[in-house]
């Protein structure tokens, strides 16, 4: 009987996932919509590299696999600032959940209409332990 060289039985998705997987982070901490997080992100200015910390509320998480991103909103000088971080980017060095917020929605876009004290979310306790 002739020798068989079946290319592969793997499906397209399995093969693409195998390639993507090498770029995915394995140590992403658990955080949810409404949580306050510290995002450490690597910034390159010319030749110099430094770490910038962006603290704010997670108002959205979208995409899956390598395309997953999350949006962090904070108020700076009475002006709302939002940054969208790719979850698996090597430039997002560390994500640290600081405080969990109580929410009933998956996207907190309503916070954009709010100002001052109304921006605060009620704290939810015991959801995750803050690692020090």
């Amino acid at each position: 009987m002739a020798r068989k060289e079946k290319a592969s039985n793997a499906t397209k998705t399995e093969m693409l996932d195998a390639v993507e997987k090498q770029s995915l982070k394995k140590d992403i901490p658990h955080f949810e919509i409404g949580d306050t997080v510290d995002v450490r992100c690597r910034i390159k200015e010319g030749d110099k590299e430094r770490i910038q910390i962006f603290t704010g509320t997670v108002i959205a998480r979208r995409g899956r696999g390598i395309n997953e991103t999350f949006t962090v909103r904070r108020i700076v000088d009475n002006e709302g600032v939002e940054r969208i971080f790719p979850l698996h980017s090597p430039n997002v060095v560390n994500i640290r959940p600081m405080r969990s917020g109580k929410t009933r929605r998956a996207k907190l876009y309503f916070l954009r209409q709010r100002a001052g004290k109304a921006v605060r979310l009620a704290q939810r306790h015991g959801k995750h332990t803050v690692s020090e």
Binding site: A7, K12, M15, L16, V19, E20, Q22, S23, R42, I66, N67, P86, H88, S89, P90, N91
Partner: peptide, 15 residues
């Protein structure tokens, strides 16, 4: 055989 397209990060953090 062409399997399909996706994205990966390189060492510099570029997608």
């Amino acid at each position: 055989k062409k399997v399909g397209m996706t994205q990966v990060y390189d060492q510099a953090g570029k997608l």
